[in-house]
């Protein structure tokens, strides 16, 4: 990288960047804080769990694909509001969203994850891993829940979630980027603002390193999702073609 890719921001600039990213995050969160507070954090009853478990595999995959697609649209809006994202060339905007939107969804999941009961908000109530049994990919589901537990244990504030999401989305090492340096510059600015906020919140020195580890865990998780989708598609090519949302196919099955 050159000097241009190592921005030095003043404290006020860090605060300003953090504020903008946090505002973008709050404006584009699927569930607002107030809504989350009103949620009764009610878990599915046993008969409801069984209803999901008895669904045909392709119907449960379709339901999850629809939920992921809904969440992706909010992530696209988040990306559009990040300072500098829309100044990137369109190829790079698409590359970053294709590679990073699901990762951001997994980061955002900590807002709707009940770590005490090991449940996550899904389809109106809180679901334990066994709700997803009919998907036929227990290892992916347990990895997602493990990730939920570990990110919840960091007890991130909304501002920290926002900056970490932007940091993940602006990963400059994604394949097929055309203007890598531009992305790198944005990511460094974001990382620097994240570091500033962590210090301001009196976080331990190790938190940033833990978040870097989470970023690689996210890649592994999304890699596993792609693997499972490919395997499912081999068995049910028509289900993917006819039942899955077009945006999901564009992002994950193209």
């Amino acid at each position: 990288s050159n000097g241009d890719a190592s921005p030095t921001l003043t404290l006020a600039e860090h605060d300003h960047l953090a504020q903008i990213i946090c505002k973008s995050h709050l404006e584009t969160c699927q569930y607002l804080r107030e809504e989350l507070q009103e949620m009764s954090w009610q878990s599915f009853l046993q008969e409801e769990v069984e209803k999901y478990q008895n669904k045909p595999q392709e119907a449960m995959w379709q339901l999850c694909a629809v939920k992921i697609t809904d969440a992706v649209q909010y992530v696209v809006e988040f990306a559009k509001r990040i300072d500098g994202f829309m100044d990137l060339c369109q190829n790079d905007q698409i590359v970053l969203l294709k590679a990073g939107s699901l990762e951001v969804i997994f980061v955002r999941m900590c807002r709707v994850f009940d770590s005490q009961n090991n449940t996550v908000y899904f389809d109106g109530k809180f679901a334990s891993p066994d709700v997803f049994k009919s998907l036929g990919c227990d290892d992916l589901i347990s990895s997602v829940f493990d990730f939920g537990q570990s990110i919840c244990s960091l007890q991130l504030t909304e501002e920290e979630i926002a900056l970490f999401s932007a940091f993940v989305l602006l990963s400059a090492d994604r394949s097929w980027l055309r203007e890598k340096l531009q992305v790198e510059k944005l990511q460094r600015k974001t990382e620097s603002a994240l570091q500033h906020i962590l210090q301001k919140n009196h976080r331990d020195d190790g938190v940033l390193e833990k978040l870097r580890c989470k970023a690689s865990a996210l890649r592994a998780l999304c890699g596993l999702h792609s693997e499972k989708l490919a395997a499912f598609r081999t068995v049910y090519p028509d289900a993917v073609r006819t039942l899955f949302p077009p945006l999901y196919k564009e992002l994950f099955a193209a």
């Binding site: 584009t28 649209q73 696209v76 809006e77 829309m86 698409i94 969203l97 294709k98 945006l247 564009e250």
Partner: peptide, 20 residues
Amino acid sequence: KEKHKILHRLLQNSTSPVEL
């Protein structure tokens, strides 16, 4: 663009689903 036409459209849209 053709391969990612929905994503392309979402990026071009000035109205967000959140605002809608």
